[in-house]
Amino acid sequence: MININTLTATELSEKLNQKTPLFLLDVREPNEVAICAIAGATHIPMNLIPLYLDQIPDEIDIVIYCHHGVRSLNVANYLAENGFETQHLYNLSGGIDAWALTVDKLMPRY
Results as ranks from 00 to 15, higher is better:
Pro45Leu: 04
Thr102His: 03
Thr10Phe: 08
Glu32Met: 09
Val27Trp: 03
Pro21Val: 08
Asp97Ser: 15
Val75Ser: 02
Tyr110Glu: 01
His67Arg: 15
Pro21Gln: 11
Gly83His: 14
Leu12Asn: 13
Glu85Phe: 01
Thr20Pro: 11
Phe23Glu: 01
Ile56Gln: 00
Leu12Thr: 14
Leu92Pro: 03
Thr42His: 07
Pro50Asn: 09
Glu14Leu: 04
Asn3Trp: 03
Ile35Glu: 11
Tyr110Gln: 02
Ile56Glu: 00
Thr20Asn: 12
Leu12His: 12
Pro30Leu: 04
Gly40Tyr: 14
Ile49Ser: 06
Gln55Cys: 07
Ala98Asp: 10
Thr102Asp: 00
Ala34Ile: 09
Ile60Tyr: 09
Gly40Ile: 13
Ala9Phe: 07
Val70Thr: 15
Asn91Phe: 02
Ala80Tyr: 06
Tyr90Ile: 06
Leu51Cys: 09
Thr86Met: 04
Asp61Phe: 07
Val70Cys: 07
Gln55Tyr: 10
Asn17His: 06
Ala100Gln: 02
Ile62Asn: 05
Ala37Leu: 04
Ala39Thr: 13
Asp26Gln: 06
Leu25Val: 10
Pro30Asp: 11
Glu14Met: 04
Val33Lys: 15
Thr8Gln: 04
Phe23Ala: 02
Pro50Gly: 13
Ile64Gln: 03
His43Thr: 14
Val33Trp: 14
Leu79Ser: 02
Ser13Arg: 05
Asn91Ile: 05
Ile64Val: 11
Asn82Leu: 05
Ala76Glu: 01
Thr86Ile: 13
Ile96Asp: 06
Tyr52Gly: 09
Tyr78Cys: 01
Leu79Val: 00
Phe84Cys: 08
Met46Cys: 08
Arg109Thr: 15
Ala41Asn: 08
Gly40Asn: 14
Pro45Cys: 08
Ile56His: 00
Ile49Lys: 05
Gly40Gln: 15
Leu106Met: 08
Ala37His: 12
Ala98Gly: 13
Ile2Tyr: 06
Ala98Trp: 04
Asn91Trp: 02
His43Lys: 15
Ile60Ser: 09
Gly69His: 05
Asn5Gly: 01
Lys19Gly: 06
Ile38Ser: 05
Leu106Gln: 15
Cys66Arg: 07
Ile96Trp: 05
Leu16Phe: 09
Asn3Glu: 13
Cys36Ile: 05
Thr102Trp: 00
Phe84Leu: 06
Gly94Gln: 01
Arg109Cys: 05
Gly83Trp: 11
Glu29Lys: 14
Glu11Ala: 15
Gln87Val: 08
Ile56Ala: 01
Asn91Cys: 03
Lys15Ala: 10
Glu11Thr: 10
Ile96Asn: 08
Val75Arg: 01
Thr10Val: 15
Met46His: 14
Asn91Leu: 02
Leu7Ser: 14
Pro108His: 12
Thr6Gly: 00
Thr6Phe: 01
Ser93Ala: 12
Arg71Thr: 08
Ser93Cys: 03
Pro21Met: 08
Trp99Asp: 01
Asn3Met: 07
Glu29Phe: 07
